[in-house]
């Protein structure tokens, strides 16, 4: 039972709650202002366990002008990829 976790803000308390629940096979998708967490200087905030994919929404990176600046290990996806990820996991949890 894997989960797609979606996070949309860079709130430290929210991040630590989210990261604590990640399990192998899960994915963590950064959208909206959470994509800033993919910048190299933010690395300490986005440590995820082995076996968890870290992905950012490409459109949200682009509108913030940081597409080329995010850490290379972070994948990116489109809205159609977001839909496909939702189906690839058993459930979608939006952190708020």
């Amino acid at each position: 039972m894997s989960t797609l976790h979606v996070i949309n803000k860079s709130d430290a308390a929210l991040w630590s709650s989210c990261v604590a629940t990640l399990s192998r096979g899960d994915s963590l998708l950064l959208i909206e202002d959470a994509v800033y967490a993919g910048l190299p200087e933010q690395q300490q905030n986005v440590f995820v366990p082995d076996g968890v994919k870290l992905i950012a929404l490409a459109e949200d990176l682009a509108v913030r002008g940081i597409s080329a600046k995010i850490r290379p290990e972070i994948g990116n996806t489109t809205y159609s990829g977001f839909v496909a990820l939702s189906l690839a996991h058993e459930r979608v949890v939006s952190w708020q």
Binding site: N8, I31, E32, Y79
Partner: peptide, 29 residues
């Protein structure tokens, strides 16, 4: 089949627009 729960007002935050784009992508797929 998808159900979307939309909790944000338009223009106040990005979330309603994100939901709209997601909805379009669901239908397009």
């Amino acid at each position: 089949s998808f159900a979307l729960v939309i909790q944000g007002a338009p223009y106040s935050s990005q979330s309603a627009l994100t939901a709209y784009r997601y909805c379009e992508a669901v239908l397009k797929a």
